[in-house]
Structures are given as C-alpha cells and as structure tokens.
Design a protein around this nucleic acid. Sequence first.
DNA 1: GCGACAG
DNA 2: ATCTTGTCGC
Length: 227
Amino acid sequence: MIVRLPRLLHRWNVGPARAIAIQRDLASRVIISKLPSPVRLVAGLDATFTRDEKWCIASVVLWDLQDQAAVEQHVQRRRLAFPYVPGLLSFREAPALLAAIGKLRVRPDVLMCDGQGFAHPRRFGIACHVGLLTGLPSLGCAKSILVGEHGVLRTARGSKSPLMDRGERVGTVLRTRDGVNPVYVSIGHRIDLPGAEEVVLRCSGRFRLPDPTRLAHQLCSKARSTT
DNA sequence: GCGACAG
DNA sequence: ATCTTGTCGC
C-alpha cells in the first residue's frame, strides 16, 4: 500500500450537518504550495453509481505524462451511504475513491479529481478532501460550476479567466481545446493555482477533459456496464 | 421567500 | 450522475 490514510481523519458515517462541520474543520489544514517538479505521474479519479443507487464505483488511472500512457488502473466499489447534496460530494464518492487509490503500487505525483477543490462554498471540495486524507498533492478539474462567476474567454486553447466567489479568487476557468467549453480548475492540496492549471493543460489537447480524468471516467463506465 | 446547486 | 440514437462538423 503506497498511500495510507491518517485514521483520525476519515469519518464517513455522518449526516449532512456533521459533514459540513467536518469540512469547515479540515479546510484549515489544506496546504497551498508549489508543486514539486517534475510532475510525471498524474492519477485521474472518477466515480459512477449503479442504477439502483446502492453502489459507488470508483476508478483511478495513473497517467504517465512522459510516455503519454496509462501505467496503472484500478476499480473499487463501496456501498453508497450518503445522498447527493451539492457541496457534500466527497461524503458520497470519497470512500470508494480512496479505496481505489489504495490499490496503486506506484505513488502518483498529483491527484486529479472530477469536481471542485477550493472552488467550493466552504473552500473544501472533493479534491481538497481526497488530497488531504492521502497527503498527496491534488487538484480539481470540474465540468461545471458549483460556486463563482467569471468573464468571457477567448476561443483558443489555453485561454483562461479567474473564477471569483464572494470577492475571492477560487479557481481558473480554462479552455483545454479550441472552441470547446472550458473546464473549472482549482487547487486541492499541496499545490498552487498556476501549478494546477499547468497540470491540466499538459494532460489535455485532444479532448475537452484531461486524459487522466477522461480515462478514469471510461473505466468507470465499463465497470458499471459489466454489472 | 426565491433561485442555484460539482457528480 | 442517470435515461439514450443519430447526427452535424472538423
């Protein structure tokens, strides 16, 4: 087991009110720092659910930026024990995601989550949560906005605009491909915003979503259809 | 009170 | 997220 979890930090059998309190508490432990370079191994994370809403299926794809290839991939399922509540996504998905991360044989340089990190009502989206609990650098790359507003972007790949919420910079709206909808990038843990943006850009080009997250999503879909 | 609301 | 085929366009 390459990644181990601090025991005190994971309590999933809680209700929404307690979950919010936990987020407020843990948010203060997030570290913003420059990403150690060079970044080569990016672990893309995603989760899906069985149609009966009983299981959460999570996947991790370890993407090698150097070789442009997936070097590891794992799937884990956990029973769903929390409803979908905007802002509390990690209490629904993180148990399965952490189980999948636990299967990695190689330690990733950074985790890439399908959802927000700092761009969250309490500045503690799923990317922060998973990063903090694993102790690994992490970032959030979401397909839509949870909180915040932004200006118009140019159409070229690489164009960006600050994502602002309550007068605070919470992330970056980033175009990963010419003429396609942008993604919403924010820090998770042990990273800074420029570093997060750079990783997302280096992981994308052919598609809107960066390769690690995109492949993790495909892996989840296949795993679910095989059920 | 009303609208918004990651996946 | 999930329910779902073809189709327009680079």
